[in-house]
């Protein structure tokens, strides 16, 4: 808490030390992610309620989704979570090149996730699975079936938006690391970006069994 700490270029004027600022940044991110979790909790509640009301129909509807696509995407997203943490690890170790490599790799995995998602949606569309009033799947015409897919699109859509936002954040982090504005000793931007990415992963971890694996 001495004057010397103020020489640190990343330190804002109202903090005493970088440790204090990092603590604040992490806590802020955690609180924000908690808030995000509640945003999704509203959708999960809706899904659970409608599952309670339309149990068997939801199970039937779930079987029209492609478990292969969903499982592949789960593996992709978990691996991307792993690579982003590797990127942070190598940044902390001062290995900027490896850090950048893993960041770009993570973004590539995110692209892969979105591509698989796009193919999955196209596959769904071809079966006549559309949300709400446009639902036209011939084999499953029961009340509640359209509701399952409406929630499927809402939840995967919102999650997809978060993936896109996360990609933006990671791309921004890549820029910072490349320019040297985020480096060993000051990893906060990358650390927070990675945390956001992990949240995207965690939400998918819950979406996967709830949407694809209903029996």
């Amino acid at each position: 808490m001495t004057e010397a700490t103020h020489l640190e270029p990343h330190l804002a004027h109202h903090y005493q030390s970088l440790a204090q600022q990092t603590h604040a940044a992490r806590l802020g991110m955690w609180v924000f992610l908690g808030s995000e979790a509640l945003l999704f909790a509203a959708l999960f509640t809706g899904l659970t309620v409608y599952r309670t009301l339309n149990g068997s129909v939801f199970a039937l509807a779930s079987q029209h989704l492609s478990v292969a696509f969903g499982t592949a995407n789960t593996f992709v997203l978990i691996t991307s979570s792993f690579t982003v943490v590797l990127s942070l690890h190598f940044l902390q170790a001062g290995r900027k090149g490896l850090s950048l490599f893993f960041l770009v790799f993570t973004i590539a995995l995110a692209c892969a996730f979105l591509t698989i998602k796009a193919f999955e949606w196209l596959h769904d569309f071809s079966e006549g699975i559309f949300p709400g009033p446009y639902y036209a799947q011939k084999e499953l015409q029961l009340p509640g079936a359209a509701m399952f897919y409406t929630f499927y699109y809402l939840m995967t859509g919102l999650h997809g938006l978060h993936v896109v936002a996360g990609m933006g954040v990671l791309a921004w982090c890549t820029g910072l690391v490349a320019r040297g504005d985020c480096h060993a000793g000051y990893e906060t931007p990358l650390e927070l970006g990675a945390m956001y990415w992990h949240l995207v992963d965690i939400i998918w971890i819950f979406l996967y069994p709830l949407l694809y694996l209903i029996t």
């Binding site: 509640l38 650390e191 992990h198």
Partner: peptide
């Protein structure tokens, strides 16, 4: 991955609180 294991108690509290409230809602 998010390093809660290494971080201070309050961050863990936030995680738990978010889960608790989501549980209450649901």
């Amino acid at each position: 991955f998010m390093h809660l294991w290494d971080q201070s108690g309050v961050n863990r509290l936030v995680f738990v609180v978010a889960l608790v409230y989501a549980g209450i809602l649901m």
